[in-house]
Design a protein around this nucleic acid. Structure first.
Lengths: 189, 189, 189, 189
DNA sequence: AATGAATGAGTGTTCATTCAT
DNA sequence: AATGAATGAACACTCATTCAT
């Protein structure tokens, strides 16, 4: 059911991912079961997010890295790219769910805000960047802001992967070198 | 009416920008009038896009630039940032309309695809980048891909501007230096 | 304006003959004028009916006939067929308006019922048929009922004329001989 | 639901047979369920047509007929009349659906045209007529055209049955003798 | 676990009509 | 006479959700 939701979002787009379309793809003949298992659409999306994120975390944890900020960053990017190529639909669905999350603080009165993966990622990434600045490897910049930039680029690359014609290895390589150029100290400037 | 649409998209998000919500914001008592003036939702969005783009183009044309690729790029970024701070809602609406444009080749049977501003922007930007590489100012990279990256960053910054708490001048400054670092030749690496 | 209504009904069908479509065809840029000149849609249709009927009556009156019931009937059929071929759109529009008239006694509380041309025609035709029976030329039948039949056939022929591929002269000839066979005394039976 | 549609069409007319009115008559509180069960309005109408036609076919098959063209024709007319008196609303609805089917080639882009029962009926009837001519029982005429005439008369009779004041047995009898007179060889002329 | 009927709110769109200009 | 903005009701249709089975 979660899998069907992922497929639907990735292949038909978030706005078209209605319960009926998801049910049809899941081989169900009624949307009733989805409503029975999940508290609502937001809950289903949250579950989908958790599911993808869980598998993503596993993959990232399996990566070795030399512990240096530059290494960690490279590992992060590479893990993203690898997972992306292995689980294109998952990443695409994830990115789209995030992109369509209702604007913060709006229509959210009823309790906990939706899972914002980006915020977590961004905090962790910013921490790595800050360490890289402390060791003098990285040029001076606002770690929070640049972390946001890097994630924006990653999401852009994910979105590109929706187009089957896109040369993902080329784009991936470019992402690596671009991020590297973005943060390392340049000769001139 | 176009103005009401912009406000609605910027403040409530694209998916919530239904004709009824736009009509309410425009002081109309019925959605009928919107359908009367515009051929459909796509047409309204196209009109909104043209409206914002027209004013944006005016602003950009008023910018001076020294003709060098680096100068043109800086001008492009600055014009974006300036217009963004002066017309936050417009830029936000514009970015969201583009982001929610249906995926190419999907449900597009009816003929001409929707106005994709991004594609145009990207082509022009790529051209500037290529010229910068020819003159040896920019490091080697795929101009098309990196142009996409730069626009993704710009859109990310626009999206940030939806949050009233965001320090836009800081983010803007960071955008300029980051883009500069992304493309210029670095000493090491 | 009446002319535009006729064209619209004949070429696009009654259900599509909205004020806006009629206005467009009339070269008007607003439906307002139609509502200004006519008390409502029913009134416009009534006016259209009267217009066509007036011209139709003129044409029929110009026909000579020998005064015998059979002659009058033949004249009626011929006049219909001639007018039909000369004013295809008019006849088509007329038939369609009649066909789409709301069912008698329904939603008509507000006063006079719509002009039912058929009822008038039928009464006059029945009278001719009765006279033919009195003179022994026609076989015995219920004049009212058979008058209805003849008009139904005429309307069917009109409706056929909407199809440009239909061979109207053949159908017209067939109509004449069929009606003749319907009412005259047969040898056997 | 199909039954409610039939009632609505028969009692209020085709143009007034909107989903809401049908739903109201079916005891539903929303039109949603109709859209849930049928792919669209055309589908509902097609379903209604099939439903009535199925029951009609049953009735006709139960009729005995001597195999001669004249016998087949008489059987066809009688079966129509009988079924009509037993299922007045059904026949009325059926006739109206057919009458309001959009004109061929108009707004039909989407592929298969709507179920045109009339066309089938007409072809079968024309075949019977042609056989009658071959055996010398029927007078010479264009079978296709006259088949159209006979169906027009039948539909006219059906339409008459909408008026509760109409004397259907009288009209039915008249229909039989009229059709008989229409096609059989007359002494004079 | 799974179905399918049912609901009510909401979507964009069309329509006849009104009215100030 | 003619326009164009504005209205409110109606239209077919989609959606998430509920509920009895």
């Amino acid at each position: 059911m979660v899998a069907a939701a992922i497929e639907t979002i990735a292949e038909e787009g978030y706005p078209r991912a209605s319960f009926s379309r998801i049910a049809r793809r899941a081989g169900l003949s009624s949307t009733g079961l989805i409503s029975y298992h999940f508290a609502g659409k937001a809950d289903l999306m949250s579950e989908v997010t958790q599911d993808i994120l869980g598998r993503f975390a596993e993959h990232v944890l399996a990566q070795s890295d030399d512990g240096s900020p530059a290494g960690e960053l490279r590992t992060f990017i590479r893990a993203n790219l690898e997972f992306m190529s292995a689980h294109r639909l998952d990443m695409l669905a994830l990115a789209r769910i995030q992109a369509h999350q209702p604007i913060a603080g709006q229509a959210e009165v009823d309790g906990e805000p939706p899972v914002t993966v980006v915020a977590q990622d961004q905090r962790r990434l910013a921490e790595v960047l800050r360490r890289g600045q402390d060791t003098g490897q990285f040029r001076p910049f606002d770690p929070q802001v640049v972390a946001g930039f890097i994630l924006a680029l990653r999401n852009h690359v994910i979105e590109q992967s929706a187009d089957p014609a896109a040369d993902m290895t080329a784009i991936g390589t470019e992402l690596e070198s671009t991020v590297s150029a973005m943060i390392t100290i340049t000769g001139e400037r």
